[in-house]
Design a protein around this nucleic acid. Structure first.
Length: 259
DNA sequence: AACGTACCCTGCCGGC
DNA sequence: TGCCGGCAGGGTACGT
């Protein structure tokens, strides 16, 4: 479920509530996530102070005293809550009297202590068209596949890749290394603009059961999408959905506006 | 190395 | 109304 803007929304709320607190207890759900939480992480959890909550791509990082990070990924259906949400709790901890729960019906989320290799951070100061050009260079795969590849570029998922490619007027199936310099500049600007706007709107909530922030509030970016979740583009063209998915996901695009 | 595919899970939705 | 297939915002492990 959550892409960069949703994770950033969670990060901010979490940071406000738990920074500086010491973890006093935790509980692993039964069943927990699909992948187990490493025992070495659980062993040193209790007694660690949360120095800050950061984010890298779609990962939440709890910066802990004793020099390590608890790394949380919300998978496709994960959410973080302080209070409610009593079903499907896969992991929870209490820090300074505040209980944080990770709720995840599909169990694709994971809690661990190390990050996989990740590409550049699209909202970092130094992310520009030259960096994006390096990401795309030498890749014959569809440009959308490369955007979704977390080792190439961190944080982008299907919603924001779809929106950014529409805004940059690039068809998702275009081979990445055939994207021109001008298009790369448009794509870079679109990625930054769209991610920032989505963060400002608190992320995307596609349905009642979908993403909520830790206080239970839905996002509002779904009201601002140009193509995702729509039938026609803003210029009135009928959108197409690729039956042959790109990178295992269906792709929505406007054949008239994107090439 | 880069790319495609299968797989991991549960819940919802539309079609019959 | 009820059942069933298809689909969903994620990553990972493989084979080529």
């Amino acid at each position: 479920m959550p892409e960069l803007p949703e994770v950033e929304t969670v990060r901010r709320a979490l940071n406000r509530r738990v920074r500086g607190r010491v973890i006093s207890s935790y509980e692993v759900g039964r069943p927990a996530f699909n992948r187990p939480i490493p025992a070495r992480a659980l062993r040193r959890l209790k007694g660690s102070r949360i120095l800050a909550v950061d984010r890298r791509g779609k990962y939440l990082l709890l910066r802990l005293s004793r020099g390590w990070d608890l790394v949380c990924h919300l998978g496709m259906s994960g959410s973080v809550s302080f209070g409610s949400d009593d079903g499907h709790v896969r992991f929870r901890f209490t820090a300074g009297g505040m209980t944080v729960k990770i709720h995840d019906p599909r169990r694709f989320g994971r809690v661990t202590d190390a990050l996989p290799p990740l590409g550049p951070e699209p909202l970092a100061q130094d992310f520009d068209a030259a960096v994006l050009a390096r990401v795309l260079r030498g890749r014959r795969a569809p440009v959308k596949s490369v955007l979704l590849d977390q080792a190439a570029l961190a944080g982008i998922g299907n919603i924001y890749a779809t929106e950014a490619l529409y805004a940059a007027r690039i068809a998702p199936a275009r081979p990445a290394d055939e994207v021109t310099e001008l298009e790369t500049r448009r794509l870079c600007a679109a990625i930054k603009r769209i991610l920032k706007r989505a963060i400002r709107l608190g992320g995307t909530t596609l349905s009642d059961e979908a993403f909520r922030d830790p206080d239970g509030r839905p996002g509002r970016f779904q009201l601002a999408t140009a193509v995702y979740g729509r039938r026609r583009c803003p210029r009135g063209h009928l959108l197409a959905a690729t039956r042959r998915p790109i990178a295992g996901r269906t792709s929505l695009y406007c054949p008239a506006c994107q090439s």
